[in-house]
């Protein structure tokens, strides 16, 4: 049982994934608040937008670790999400600051439902991948 780089990347991935889970929970809650009129869309966008890039970067970071450590399966599982993130950011509305969400279009029912569904799906994905990383970490540690 030796501590090697794959094990390290899994451990880091676990920690980061926990953050990502929190992000997506926050995301879901935020859109729920929007839907139920608790928050002003401008405020909500101001609080959501700064979190978008960090989330994407964190996710990218753990995949970078997987790439370097040669954990192809875990990397493969995450590639669709990376592509989605890239697509999402490329097609974001015209805005000068970082982020995805435009207060003038976010209240559109379609946008709201898409964002909310995205939040739930990501939450599920991060949760599942959390256990996957846990499993992967154990496997790596045992194998070593």
């Amino acid at each position: 049982m030796a501590f090697n780089f794959p094990a390290f990347s899994y451990i880091i991935a676990l920690i980061v994934d926990a953050f990502l889970i929190f992000f997506s929970i926050f995301h879901v809650i935020a859109f729920d608040e929007l839907k139920t009129d608790y928050k002003n869309p401008i405020d909500q966008c101001n609080s959501l937008n700064p979190l978008v890039l960090p989330e994407y970067l964190l996710h990218l970071f753990i995949n970078l670790l997987f790439l370097l450590s040669g954990e192809w399966i875990s990397l493969l599982i995450n590639i669709p999400l990376i592509l989605y993130h890239l697509h999402r950011y490329y097609t974001r509305p015209v805005m000068s600051g970082p982020g995805l969400y435009d207060p003038t279009s976010i209240m559109n029912a379609d946008v709201l439902t898409v964002c909310q569904r995205e939040g739930w799906i990501k939450l599920a994905f991060y949760l599942l991948s959390f256990f996957l990383y846990l499993y992967g970490m154990i496997v790596v540690l045992i194998a070593a």
């Binding site: 009129d37 869309p41 207060p103 003038t104 379609d110």
Partner: peptide
């Protein structure tokens, strides 16, 4: 029945406002 999209000049402050 809910409002899906608004058209016009305004700022949508909540789902129906």
């Amino acid at each position: 029945i809910t409002i899906h999209t608004f058209h016009g000049n305004f700022f949508v402050r909540s789902t129906d406002l």
